[in-house]
Computed example of a mutant assay.
Amino acid sequence: MKGLTELLKGVLEGIVLERISQGETYGYEITNYLVDLGFEDIVEGTVYTVLLRLEKKGLLDVEKRKSELGPPRKFYRLNDSGKEYLAVFWEKWGFIEERLRQLKGDK
């Protein structure tokens, strides 16, 4: 769905962490995954900005490896801090989702 950029800003870290929790990956692969999910507005630059922020927060283990198709790639894995952060993200998301359902009148 298009036009989600502003709404996604607050949750993109959690979405990216969830993808990384499913297995080691790199930025371009994450971008393609998100586009395949329907997040058409997501561009590589946005994903790399999020990855850098998550890396600076100490939530990821990062390994640079040679690539046969160009410059070295950074591969990302969730570390223990990242797993804890992701668990808290889903708790917060559950709270928001529940309140939105109440607001909308869904049971």
Rank of each mutant, 00 (worst) to 15 (best):
Arg73Gly: 04
Asn79Pro: 06
Ser67Leu: 08
Arg19Lys: 12
Ile30Lys: 00
Tyr48Ile: 09
Leu37His: 10
Phe89Asp: 03
Gly94Ser: 05
Ser21Thr: 08
Glu6Asn: 13
Lys2Phe: 12
Thr49Phe: 13
Arg77Cys: 01
Lys57Ala: 04
Gly3Asn: 02
Thr25His: 02
Val35Glu: 09
Glu63Met: 07
Thr5Cys: 11
Phe75Cys: 05
Asn79Arg: 12
Gly94Gln: 05
Tyr33Asn: 07
Ile30Asp: 02
Lys107Ile: 14
Leu54Gln: 03
Phe39Cys: 09
Tyr26Trp: 09
Asp80Lys: 10
Leu17Cys: 00
Glu29Lys: 15
Thr49Ser: 13
Met1His: 08
Leu69Ile: 12
Tyr48Gln: 15
Pro71Lys: 15
Ser21Pro: 07
Gln22Ala: 11
Leu103Val: 10
Glu40Lys: 10
Leu51Ala: 05
Gly94Thr: 05
Gly94Leu: 06
Gly45Gln: 12
Ala87Met: 04
Lys83Ala: 07
Val43Thr: 10
Asn79Leu: 07
Tyr48Phe: 15
Ile96Phe: 12
Lys64Phe: 07
Lys74Thr: 05
Leu4Tyr: 06
Trp90Asn: 03
Glu29Asn: 15
Gly105Glu: 09
Val47Phe: 02
Lys2Leu: 13
Lys66Cys: 12
Glu63Gly: 06
Lys83His: 07
Gln102Ser: 15
Gly23Glu: 01
Asp36Glu: 10
Leu52Tyr: 15
Lys9Trp: 10
Leu60Asp: 02
Ser81Ala: 13
Arg65Asp: 05
Ile30Cys: 10
Gly70Asn: 07
Gly58Ala: 04
Leu8Ala: 01
Pro72Phe: 03
Leu54Trp: 00
Arg99His: 14
Arg19Leu: 11
Asn32Ile: 09
Tyr48Ala: 04
Phe75Asp: 13
Leu54Phe: 00
Tyr33Lys: 07
Tyr85Trp: 14
Val16Met: 00
Val35Asn: 03
Thr25Phe: 02
Ile42Asn: 01
Glu18Trp: 09
Leu12Cys: 02
Thr5His: 14
Arg53Gly: 05
Tyr76Asp: 02
Ile42Met: 04
Tyr85Lys: 11
Asp61Asn: 12
Lys2His: 12
Asp36Arg: 06
Thr46Pro: 08
Leu4Arg: 06
Leu7Pro: 00
Asp61Val: 11
Lys64Gln: 11
Glu18Cys: 10
Tyr48Asp: 08
Thr46Arg: 06
Val50His: 02
Arg19Tyr: 09
Thr46Phe: 05
Asp80Tyr: 08
Asp41His: 00
Val35Tyr: 05
Tyr28Ser: 13
Glu91Tyr: 11
Ile96Lys: 03
Leu103Ser: 09
Gly27Tyr: 10
Thr49Arg: 15
Tyr28Asn: 14
Gly70Met: 03
Glu44Gly: 15
Asp36Pro: 04
Ser67Pro: 08
Thr49Asp: 14
Lys2Pro: 08
Tyr76Phe: 10
Lys56Glu: 11
Glu98Lys: 14
Lys92Pro: 04
Glu84Lys: 11
Met1Trp: 09
Ile15Thr: 01
Phe75Gln: 08
